[in-house]
């Protein structure tokens, strides 16, 4: 293989890390024309709710109505509330496991279906379907899929000689069941975006590599992977953000149980807001999550940018 593969700019990742490899961007004021519609739209519809949430976070609530200005009390509670910490732990485990599995399987599947395989168009369409299977519905179905006495999964496992797994009734397995449904649902997201990016890769690089006698593995390692890296980080970023907010599946399948074994952060916040009507504390929780996720995003992607700069 003759030429070094071009290392892409790093794109959004640089942006997120507040960096600035923007040498090729012009300062043409027409840029505003492209940017403004979206910016105004988002600002218009989110500024009031956001300020409202921020405002309520300084209040205590009784009967779902503002009761007393309590300053930073709601934020102080964030640090002493063991239940919140448990929810955070559950969520972190959930995020790490599901996002890693989804990334690996989704990208692998995209590579697989990027090959010349008969019927690939139909296969691609099928692989995307779980994206549309409403999570609430999947949560309900999960109750029957993972049904312990005679559910299809346990019956299948028994034919393999594995004793039935107490999927939903034990704190050890219930999170696994929730994660499996989530992985089923969101792997196609990774698949879809990486497939779209794979198809944008320049074919001539591969042809040149082939002429040079590079094996498939060489091409993958030297061309596909480096070219795909920015997109993969991007997908990781988007999946991370979504996974931190997971709600529908545990809310319809396990309701957080047994005990608090599957009580994820959003479910906890949901209960605080719409079960206990403690809107102020719920707002504080939301702000904390915003802070945590943005911190992770910035730290993680700041590091990546450094890697790029050293490597490039």
């Amino acid at each position: 293989m003759a030429q070094e593969p071009v290392i892409p700019s790093g794109g959004v990742l640089n942006d997120v890390a507040q960096g600035g490899n923007v040498a090729r961007r012009t300062k043409d004021p027409t840029g505003m024309f492209f940017l403004l519609p979206a910016a105004v739209w988002v600002l218009l519809f989110t500024i009031f709710p956001l300020l409202y949430a921020l405002y309520t976070s300084f209040w205590s609530f009784r009967f779902g109505q503002r009761n007393q200005f309590v300053g930073l009390d709601n934020f102080v509670r964030l640090f002493t509330d063991a239940n919140l910490h448990s929810a955070l732990r559950v969520t972190l485990t959930f995020v790490i496991v599901t996002v890693v599995v989804e990334m690996l399987v989704g990208f692998g599947l995209a590579l697989l279906l990027n090959q010349e395989i008969r019927g690939k168009s139909v296969l691609r369409a099928i692989m995307v379907l779980p994206l549309f299977a409403t999570p609430v519905g999947m949560g309900f179905l999960g109750i029957t899929l993972f049904y312990e006495i005679n559910g299809p999964i346990n019956v299948f496992l028994r034919t393999l000689g594995i004793e039935g797994i107490p999927w939903l009734s034990t704190p050890q397995w219930a999170p696994v069941a929730v994660m499996l449904i989530d992985i089923w649902q969101w792997t196609p997201f990774v698949f879809l975006v990486s497939l779209a990016a794979l198809q944008g890769l320049p074919v001539d690089l591969y042809e040149a590599a082939e002429v040079d006698g590079a094996s498939g593995w060489d091409s993958f390692r030297n061309i596909t992977l480096p070219l795909m890296t920015p997109t993969l980080w991007l997908i990781l970023l988007l999946r991370l953000v979504e996974a931190f907010k997971v709600f529908d599946i545990p809310a319809s399948m396990t309701l957080g149980g047994p005990g608090r074994a599957t009580e994820v952060y959003s479910l906890f916040t949901y209960r605080t807001a719409l079960r206990f009507f403690d809107h102020g504390y719920a707002a504080a929780q939301g702000i904390l999550l915003l802070f945590i996720v943005m911190l992770i995003v910035t730290l993680l992607f700041g590091r990546i940018r450094e890697l790029y700069e050293v490597g490039g």
């Binding site: 009784r62 009967f63 009734s169 034990t170 704190p171 957080g256 149980g257 047994p258 005990g259 608090r260 074994a261 009580e263 209960r271 079960r275 206990f276």
Partner: peptide, 22 residues
């Protein structure tokens, strides 16, 4: 007032006791 919240707590801790977490 708050009956729902009191009961939610009982509900969760009952489940914890029933499944051996506490």
């Amino acid at each position: 007032p708050g009956a729902f919240e009191y009961w939610n707590s009982l509900d969760i801790h009952l489940s914890e006791a029933a499944t051996g977490q506490k």
